[in-house]
């Protein structure tokens, strides 16, 4: 009888563990995020520790080849210019494996950053560890981080706005609204959105 109970307990424990594993895919709003230390297109390493005076970061997983990323490039530059001076710089991270997606190789990143005149770091997550830990699944995929007592807290996850195809037809600027809220010491009203995007190309 006792062994049966123990068995039951073990089974329950195992199933709880499984459920936790299957749900632990990346960050949710409110989670503490790990920092980053990745290679930039200018050859330097860029880390969150390089920005002691910022209030947080607009981390955007994006890449060269994806039409959605390309469609958003000008908007990302505008967002960086607008919010960098207010303490929220854009940190662009290419999550893709360059063997699976050669267009997103480090050398092609350098070319694209130069062509478009990126005003923000464009980093390569070479071993995809930041991508996996954050839970980025598509490009572009935004994680808005706010510094709080030495931690980076995830405040918004999702899309930049509600119209990838036509910047002029945007009705809701999800990301800007979220940053504006943080700047007013409020929580973003909308803190999670979804969008169609290119899947992250994981190494095989």
């Amino acid at each position: 009888m006792k062994t049966l109970q123990i068995r039951k307990l073990i089974l329950t424990l195992i199933s709880v563990l499984f459920i936790q594993i299957s749900f632990a895919q990346g960050y949710q709003v409110g989670d503490k995020a790990i920092g980053f230390n990745l290679k930039n297109v200018d050859g330097t390493m860029v880390s969150d520790a390089n920005f002691p005076d910022t209030k947080g970061f607009i981390v955007i997983f994006t890449c060269n080849h994806c039409p959605f990323s390309v469609a958003y490039e000008d908007r990302i530059i505008a967002i960086d210019k607008k919010y960098k001076t207010q303490g929220y710089p854009v940190i662009a991270i290419n999550p893709n494996d360059s063997i699976v997606a050669p267009a997103d190789s480090y050398s092609n990143m350098i070319i694209r950053a130069r062509e478009k005149g990126f005003t923000f770091p464009y980093l390569l997550d070479a071993d995809q560890s930041i991508t996996n830990t954050y839970g980025a699944t598509r490009t572009p995929h935004v994680f808005l981080l706010k510094k709080n007592k030495g931690n980076l807290i995830v405040e918004y996850i999702g899309a930049i706005d509600d119209n990838h195809e036509d910047a002029a037809a945007v009705k809701k600027e999800f990301l800007s609204d979220a940053v504006d809220a943080l700047l007013k010491n409020r929580q973003p009203e909308v803190n999670f959105t979804k969008a169609i995007g290119c899947s992250v190309k994981f190494a095989k």
Partner: peptide
């Protein structure tokens, strides 16, 4: 399928879908 309001319809198609394709 062309509908900019993907934040709404992705969930309606399937809650577990992040929006990545295929």
């Amino acid at each position: 399928l062309s509908d900019p309001n993907s934040n709404v319809w992705i969930n309606k198609i399937n809650k577990s879908w992040s929006g990545a394709i295929p």
